[in-house]
Amino acid sequence: MTVIAFSDVDVLDMLVVAAVAVTAILAIAIPRRVGATIAFLVFGLLLALLWARVAAPDVAIAEAALGGGVAGALLVDALHRRQPAQPNRDRRRAVAITAVGAALGAVTFAALATVLSRLTAEPADLGPLALEAVERSGVSHPITAVLLNFRNLDTLLEIAVVVFAAVGAAALSRDRIRTVTDPGPVRRVIAVIIVPALVLLAAWLLVAGTSEPGGAFQAGAVLGAALIIAHLCGVRPARAAGGRALVLVVAGLLAFILLGGIGLAATGTWLALDLSWAFAAILAIETLLTVSIGVALAMLFLAAGSRDDAAAADRAADAPALGGAP
């Protein structure tokens, strides 16, 4: 039996991993939504430190903009709602369920750990093959080459998921999106300063993504954040709702499918890109994807924040009338 020795591991790495594990436990164990959400946001920040340790700057940028930014905004926005009271469960039953869950979790973890302990230290063949083929992909950044050329079917399906989520969310809360009518001078200034800066940052991330960390996902996340801030600051044309937003979101998906057809006609393989026009095609599709993802994320945020405020306003309007009744 091998003794697990931590002598090769840096103390700081161990501390960060321990902190990640503790915040993960807190995020699932705290019964109040506010506490669980805060623990989850801290968990995301600590994970970003680990992304730097495993040489993944692209993931760190995406996580900062999406995991911490947009998803954090969605969760925090959901907190102003009242947490519904949980039905009182039999205490013994709750303990039994937790015990069974812990036992099954331990078995699953043991199985996963067995697989991991047999992994070779050598990387899989796919990585070197992908790195070798980068020069034939049209772009020089390996991750962009994988996302938009070698495995662009994954990216096509991903944008399909995003479109369905945005359309579904919009359908559930179509007519009750709250509007910010009087943002006040401070928020107006924030909009003037931050929104153009974020749009510029999104454009830079998009173009830089062909040769260094960055790309459509990160740029789309930053654009989505810009649209959300613009909406919260009362910039009306930036409202990502209704038919216009839907057209922009669906355009990315349709253009990607069209690109697949062009690939089929030009090279004989669905979604294949020819080196002579691959760079132009990748940059064009990335631009459309950035707009699609950005508008879709803003649509999701608006839809998630819509109903409750309208309902609260209804209740507030009803309250005096009810109070006046004998």
Binding site: V54, A55, A56, D58, V59, A62, E63, L66, G67, V70, A71, L74, P123, A124, L126, G127, A130, L131, P142, I143, A145, V146, L147, F150, R151, D154, T155, E158, V161, V162, A165, A166, G215, F217, G220, A221, I293, A296, L297, L300
Partner: peptide, 18 residues
């Protein structure tokens, strides 16, 4: 590092946000 799993994680982050 191998770019294929990194690309998968990037796709996963966007799908998870949706």
């Amino acid at each position: 590092p191998d770019p294929v799993p990194q690309a998968l994680v990037l796709t996963g982050i966007v799908v998870m946000a949706a």
